[in-house]
Amino acid sequence: MNDSSYISQEHQETFERYLMDQMDDRERSQFLENLEQDAQLMQQFNEFKALFHSVEEAALREELESFHSELESPSKKTTKGRTFPIYKIAAVITVLVVMGLWLLYQKDPSEKLYQEYFTADPGLPTVMGNSSNYAFYEAMVDYKQGHYKTAISKWEQLWAQKKDNDTLNYFLGSAYLADGETTRAISFFDLVVENEQASFKNEAAFYQGLAHLKNGDTQAALKSLKKAQDEKSRELIKKLKD
């Protein structure tokens, strides 16, 4: 940069058109030719280009901050991004409910009981921020939105490091069960049920029972349910024995 006076408005606007890709081929090649031949113009252009990029860069940095905050609260994004009219959603839900009811009455009794008792664990409240458990809660958000496969892949990465974390094991089991992979769900719940101190022991036993039920294995289901010391499990045991 030198301290001589600033370029004319016309020059500035020509530079802008070039930098913003608004020139047609002819104008662009003419412009580049002028730059080649005129050292002063070249110098002015480079100086302007640097200023232009600095404005863009500052704006980009602001934008990156907002990308980042949307990353941390995906709920904002989903409400913004959807443009389906409400009646379409309602129609889809109605069809799903009807199909669900129809399936319910088609299935054998243990499947029916499973349908009756199974609602996915609602998950833990997600508190975002610089918590060291960020990865865990990030996956929790996916889980709560029903993106079980995404949640599973994120949790499994954590699992590689903390195989004996019972919260992690419990929610991996829950995610697998909600995703229909009963066998995997059962083995994760096993890890929790076997741990006397686990805080989700009852829940794990209950859901493990449901997973067996879904597999049609009533005996195994009873065995798991007996380990859960809660009302719902006792009720279900009674129905199974009837």
């Binding site: 940069m1 301290d3 600033y6 408005q9 500035q12 100086e47 302007f48 200023l51 600095s54 404005v55």
Partner: peptide, 13 residues
Amino acid sequence: KYRCMEKLRSLSL
């Protein structure tokens, strides 16, 4: 816009 760029240049110099 023109004035702003002129100002930005002189400030950064």
